[in-house]
Design a protein around this nucleic acid. Structure first.
Lengths: 302, 302
DNA sequence: CATGAGTCATAACTCCAGATTATGCCCTCA
DNA sequence: TGAGGGCATAATCTGGAGTTATGACTCATG
């Protein structure tokens, strides 16, 4: 980390949105109007970004503004930030949503964290104005909500479908054995085998997490999981412990994309074990999703 | 899009960073110290986020603060925003970098847009303080810089290695035929074949883009590309035109992940055409990368 | 050419979000 | 029982970002 806070070196969201608008509309004034500020304010903000970044972003001319070469790149990077912010917003809105929402979703943590916000952004684009409420919990809690009629659609990551529920696979996920790069396993030439994994104490989430259930079931033939090395409350805490070299763990590939790409974590292949798992949308048997629930379901498998 | 600007509904980056610090450190005061503000300021900011989101995020107690259930979710979503901002920051810093940087990188647009920022974040984590400068252009420009000694490492997406350069494949990419969901091709049952693709006018980037070269070469046996329907200057403009229903296009899968997931674009399978392409790191033959260039190269294939 | 409709920049003023310091209460632990 | 860590409230300050008003420039057009 360079010294100096990130916020001092990255323009705020309003400025990034403004830049996207300028790129799209080709004029500071039009972008200003679209974002609801005055033209001088827009001009100033863009100028401020250019000063902050030390690079000219837009070419101003008496008949409009176009992006410079650097501006094109910056705008693309800005778009990623704005997209992440949109996912945040969609998720937060659902979290705030009250009981009377038109679509009440219950989802397991992994799905709520990594997949649902994107789906909600898409739903918002396709069916604007759909009020969504979100409740996150483990598979049992999701099933309970559905059976009690307190949720219209659920998402779970277990192996078996909870009793009384029907479902459809909406995505696949794979559990991955990971260690810090310095761990001895990272230097193995032969893949790990299931027996070794079963006898090794791992860093895991608390009992009841979907990840842990699937893993335990997959290792059943080898005696099941060893007693955990550490039990932590959140996936993030587990990742931090593994990166810190505390020991190996098994995590969803959804959770570790960034860490693998940057080399902070290393994947350890396992020879004789299939750790794929299905992520399912679920609903009470007999109550096929309708209305907004059906819309959302439709989005999850393009 | 809901009315009301995104920036009014998503906390600013400083607040999100603060939240991550609270999650990590378990105390408002410690998080405040780490982020360089006073404890009351931190308390106020968190309170402000909770008011903005309408959800309690942290459980305050006389011996520290821990995240609520909702807080865990929000923190995870916040982390995505912060990571995107870090990529933005790393990219922007490189863009601003001057000639005397320790590592001068030249990259094609696609790589500079989608892959390089992540690599730079990782490089910064592993070799803090490496000054990087970035220059983006097409393959020919990258090759020119390298031969002139004005860049230490290049990244290109062409088919053939430019003369005088050696390289190593660092990633693979696939070109994808896409249309809006309403386009007739989206309702086909049989995959498209190369002959059809070759005679169909497409929406494309301007001549000279790596994507267009690869596509033209792949279709050479079928008479090459038809005259384009539209020629646009940026990938973003192409995407917007396709989403708007102007016609089909062929784009890198790196560029359209979000649009495919949300259903704004539809992938059209092509039966008899392999549109994979290699993304390569390149350097002048005989000058194997050393120092920072070697560090960066090492990061690109974990 | 003169005019009007675009564009963007500059200037003067206002205002509030978010910072600071100072302080108090609460809990825990030695 | 006092010390220390943790959080909240209160009073105050300030700078960034907004606003309106205006001017300069370019271009299409009658």
């Amino acid at each position: 980390m360079t010294h100096g806070r990130l916020a001092d070196r990255v323009p705020d969201l309003a400025a990034l949105e403004l830049l996207l608008a300028v790129a799209r509309l080709g004029s500071l004034g039009r972008a200003a109007r679209e974002t609801g500020i005055s033209q001088p304010a827009a001009s100033g903000r863009i100028r401020g970004m250019e000063r902050m970044l030390g690079v000219a972003l837009v070419e101003r001319s008496p008949r409009g503004s176009t992006l410079t070469d650097a501006g094109v790149l910056v705008t693309d990077w800005a778009r990623r930030v704005v997209e992440a912010a949109e996912a945040f917003d969609a998720g937060a809105e659902a979290l705030r949503g009250r009981r009377d929402s038109r679509l009440r979703v219950a989802a397991s943590m992994t799905i709520a964290e990594y997949l649902l916000p994107g789906w909600l952004v898409a739903l918002r684009a396709r069916r604007p104005g759909t009020a969504v409420s979100l409740l996150a919990g483990n598979s049992a809690a999701v099933a309970e909500r559905l059976r009690a009629g307190e949720a219209d659609l659920g998402f779970v990551e277990g192996i078996a479908l909870p009793a009384g529920l029907s479902g459809a696979v909406v995505a696949r996920d794979r559990l991955v054995v990971v260690t810090a790069p310095a761990h001895p396993w990272a230097r193995r030439r032969a893949p790990l085998d299931a027996g070794e994994l079963a006898v090794t104490p791992l860093i895991l989430r608390e009992r009841g997490s979907g990840t842990r259930q699937v893993l335990d079931a997959a290792l059943a033939a080898h005696g099941g999981l060893a007693e955990p090395l550490l039990e932590l409350a959140s996936t993030t805490a587990v990742k931090a412990a593994v990166v810190g070299g505390a020991g190996p763990s098994v995590l969803s590939e959804l959770a570790i994309g960034e860490e693998l790409a940057s080399g902070r974590l290393v994947e350890i292949p396992v020879g004789d074990l299939d750790l794929h798992r299905a992520l399912r949308a679920v609903w009470p048997t007999g109550h096929r999703p309708t209305g907004p629930a059906r819309d959302l379901l439709g989005l999850t498998r393009p």
